[in-house]
Design a protein around this nucleic acid. Structure first.
Lengths: 161, 161
DNA sequence: CTCGGTGCAAAGCTTTTGCATCCGC
DNA sequence: GCGGATGCAAAAGCTTTGCACCGAG
């Protein structure tokens, strides 16, 4: 059994436990969506996932995709990111290392990075303010200093700055 | 001259310099919007600002509000936040200390806090990844441990978790 | 059999866009 | 007077909702 298959099995089990705990139904659509998400890594939005499933001849409605993503977010198999536009991006979160994001303000490219001090900040702030912190979102914005940054955004839309 | 008036004058000057530098017009609408934003502190969204101006008998279109907020964001008189919903929230950023946000997952209340280590993370990540970091967004999510947390969200919508 | 879940389409919200008019320069 | 800015309304996205039907328990 390969590493991926092992992860997929574990993930299905977590989802099943969650659904049973909450008294929710174990529908094929829900498992199909989970499967699809864990068949790749990287960021995706609802539309991308919806179209990918359609292409693979698995027909689900957008409503079900939204519903299932909510569930998966609640059982922490998926994290939702809110980057600086008004659409929700998602990412699978089991079997992946905790990380944060750096976004290029020229080309929108997303780079992942990790810094242990964030957890220190998180727990200290929680203690100080009397909050039980469950998660965080750290996004850095900046320009790539390398010359191979393709500057897509500038092409896409001449920014009025 | 009071502290607020001094700030308002400084802020107008910054905006004027910015508009002149970019060759943009100094329209009364733009200054009226800036004025309205700096007449209060705290977070606001486009609709809230739009209605506030309307109530004060200053008629601007939503389109102009969006346009001007873009300009103000570019000259760093306003920061835009993307919390975990799909609407943009703004906050004036001149004359206020740099801070980050903690959001209560029960009642959506936003608390501000500050930790100097974030700047260290920011510059180290930038150096490592060869990016010129210009700004960041750090949001912590958690539940208030005090009993006076009114749990508005639970009322607003029985979350399907 | 029941009632939660799905699919579809309509509605809701925020944001963007097109165009005629206006006004800063 | 020119060309950018505004106002309005329509259009465009993303997300939620309503309702008839389906199927998991």
């Amino acid at each position: 059994m390969g590493q991926n298959q092992k992860i997929n099995q574990k993930v299905r089990d977590i989802f099943t436990d969650f659904l049973e705990l909450k008294g929710l139904r174990k529908t094929p659509e829900r498992y199909a969506i989970l499967e699809e998400i864990y068949s790749n890594s990287g960021h995706f939005d609802v539309e991308k996932l919806y179209l990918k499933m359609k292409k693979n001849n698995y027909r689900v409605s957008r409503a079900t995709v939204y519903n299932t993503l909510d569930l998966l977010e609640n059982c922490e198999l998926v994290v939702r990111h809110q980057f600086h536009n008004n659409i929700s991006e998602y990412e699978r979160s089991f079997g992946a290392s905790q990380h944060d994001h750096l976004i290029c303000t020229d080309c929108d490219k997303v780079v992942e990075f990790c810094d242990p001090r964030i957890h220190a900040i998180q727990s200290m702030a929680g203690e100080l303010l009397k909050y039980e912190i469950t998660n965080h979102s750290l996004i850095l914005y900046g320009q790539c200093k390398k010359e191979n940054c393709e500057n897509k955004k500038a092409k896409k839309k001449a920014r009025k700055n």
